[in-house]
Design a binder for these strands. Structure first.
Lengths: 211, 211
DNA sequence: TTTTCTATGTAACATTTATCACGGTTTGTT
DNA sequence: AACAAACCGTGATAAATGTTACATAGAAAA
């Protein structure tokens, strides 16, 4: 789909130079995906870099036994360092990317990603900024996993969900939470019950309220 | 200290263009540091980016209770993405960098790091490659910590030490290993004893042999 | 309504990791 | 030699997490 230039100017006018905006409008691929849509699976080849306009994408790491661990979310104006890496190296994906909600994004083909780095300094800055943000995200994951216990990590995750949805009640199953924290459903159920007894959450089917 | 241009040409001739080599020789700061030398502590400001010529630097993440966790090693021709991030953002260090052995490096002042990105495409590629490598390193840490138990992580760490030192016998205390894996000395001692019983290592004071 | 499926609760038990409390050994120092 | 300091071994115990097994509850489908 052709992208509306004015829309891009509103969104990116203060980041990208106008020439770049034009090219983005021409060669970028505007798309809307539904919640749960899988953008990428381990082993898939990546031929484009997404820039998220609205909504959010969650990025998960997989092991070879089918387990997962949440790495980070991509939100407004974010892009993905992993896809950059993969694009520039022509390597396969080693992660999963899933839409957390209905999401609109621009997909930039790999050739342009590289070309623009030389051509537009604003794009170059954008790419560097992306790397830096994701780098910090990964360091945060490491901090969490290495230095904190599951209950703390769970609370933090719930808080993120709240911030994301903009609502302190949100829909999710224990199973899903368990996957994102790379543990089992039973463990999460137990911890949630603890939290409920402490008055920190209220639980119901498919739904959690953070108090 | 002034850097020998011919030396740089040997080391970097096939990566960097000759103009950049000249600038490196002029403005880069050549230095040799001893084993155990602390290049950086959390909270320190970073005003230069190191490029390691010989030896190795280990990069550790700290929490606010004095614990540590090994992130990765910087070796030959490697550079540090964190210092890049910090430099470009003028932020404080959130890691510790210590020389694992006697190490020689070139220290590039932050202004040049940025300037050269625009000026030399080989430097730009170098910076991108650095980000990508460190990104992968962090993903590996996450894989290890999230999906693997301590005994496996310990063996992997020992294997890395062997590869690093180029010798299957190397000097280290249980305490140091415990720090790098963010656990306690007792736990490591026990696991090492297990490994010894399985014939996978031989233990002596300050020394481990991987079999 | 009855059935079926999915999600949750929970006890019991196993395993892994952490902590505490020592005692012993090697190395270096006085 | 006597002492101190650093390093290692190990039992006992506790805490955290993982696993198994089954019960129940709620929602959806038939």
């Amino acid at each position: 789909m052709q992208i509306d230039l004015k829309f891009l100017q509103e969104k990116f006018g203060n980041i990208f130079e106008s020439e770049l905006l034009k090219e983005l409008a021409q060669t970028g691929n505007f798309m809307t995906i539904e919640e749960g849509f899988v953008l990428m699976r381990p082993g898939g080849y990546i031929r484009s870099v997404p820039i998220i306009l609205q909504g959010s994408i969650k990025i998960l790491r997989n092991d070879n036994e089918g387990r997962e661990a949440l790495l980070y979310y991509l939100g407004g104006m974010d892009s993905c360092a992993l896809s950059l890496t993969c694009c520039l190296d022509r390597k396969m994906s080693e992660i999963t990317a899933i839409a957390e909600e209905k999401t609109t994004l621009i997909s930039v083909p790999v050739e342009k990603v590289e070309e623009w780095i030389t051509k537009y300094s604003s794009w170059k800055h954008f790419v560097f900024a992306t790397y830096q943000k994701r780098f910090e995200d990964l360091l945060n994951v490491i901090d969490d996993v290495v230095f904190h216990k599951l209950d703390e990590r769970l609370i933090k995750l719930l808080q993120r969900k709240v911030k994301q949805s903009g609502n302190n009640i949100f829909n999710i199953t224990h199973e899903e939470l368990a996957n994102e924290l790379a543990t089992s459903r039973e463990v999460i159920s137990r911890l949630l019950k603890q939290l409920e007894k402490l008055g920190k959450v209220k639980l119901s089917r498919n739904k959690i309220e953070l108090c």
